[in-house]
Design a protein around this nucleic acid. Structure first.
Lengths: 121, 121
DNA sequence: CTTCATGCTTACTAATGGTAAGTAACATAC
DNA sequence: GTATGTTACTTACCATTAGTAAGCATGAAG
């Protein structure tokens, strides 16, 4: 990305270089990829088993939930723990990075309430 | 989503209900949808014409850039202005909502620098 | 008359998403 | 001991979206 006249970000941060732009894009797309935000929020609110999360996150399918959980685990936003009961239980929880991410994204709620067209009728 | 024991968000915000969860998911997925964050950042940094943005945002295709700009305009994060020169110029800029969104997302840069595996090398 | 620039479309293929059904490893009910 | 249920996933299939490349309208310049 180019150097630029718009001041809105430059005034608040010391320096933005191309590396920061790429890292910003990468993080935003991870957090915002379909279902991820809702899954992280479900975990933040206490859901910790596959079926809990599936119920918390409206309309997600088992297939996509499994895929997203794997991806979020690989990216170290969540931690997966196997509990050998019968049937086996798997617990998911946010990593420290995941908790921080949710905290960082939280202002989106107020932003949306201010700017997004209402969802309810 | 369900009520939950985890305190990390509840301690910081007055109240999270199901509506807030949906609105959170919706906003995060808008901001994080592939290319959107990079496009908004390019605009924040001063790019204002189609071809500027196309150059700023690495590897995006014309087709997707056009589609995303239309979407972001509809969602009122950006404003499109036609300038009748020849060839015609189109200027894009962030709306107030768009500027605020970028400001809100900015902490992601530090988060990523702290937690994401390095991209360079 | 040909080439160039801008801001898109169109056509086509590859990847991802959505829906539904199935599976392994047991436990409990009948 | 056969049937059914539970959990956490897979697999199969089709629809939607993304990626790549080329084209197009409008004039301007050479």
């Amino acid at each position: 990305m180019k150097a630029a006249p718009n001041q809105s970000l430059r005034n608040e941060s010391s320096h933005i270089d191309d590396e920061a732009c790429r890292i910003f894009q990468r993080s935003a797309e991870l957090a915002g990829k379909k279902w991820n935000a809702a899954i992280l929020l479900a975990l933040a609110r206490g859901a910790d088993r596959f079926s809990d999360i599936a119920h918390s996150v409206d309309r997600i399918s088992d297939r996509l939930l499994a895929a997203r959980l794997r991806e979020l685990e690989q990216r170290r936003l969540i931690v997966r723990e196997v509990i050998p009961t019968t049937p086996v239980q798997i617990r998911y929880r946010l990593s420290t990075a995941g908790e921080e991410l949710i905290r960082i994204l939280h202002p989106l709620v107020q932003w949306a309430e201010r700017w997004e067209p209402r969802l309810k009728d």
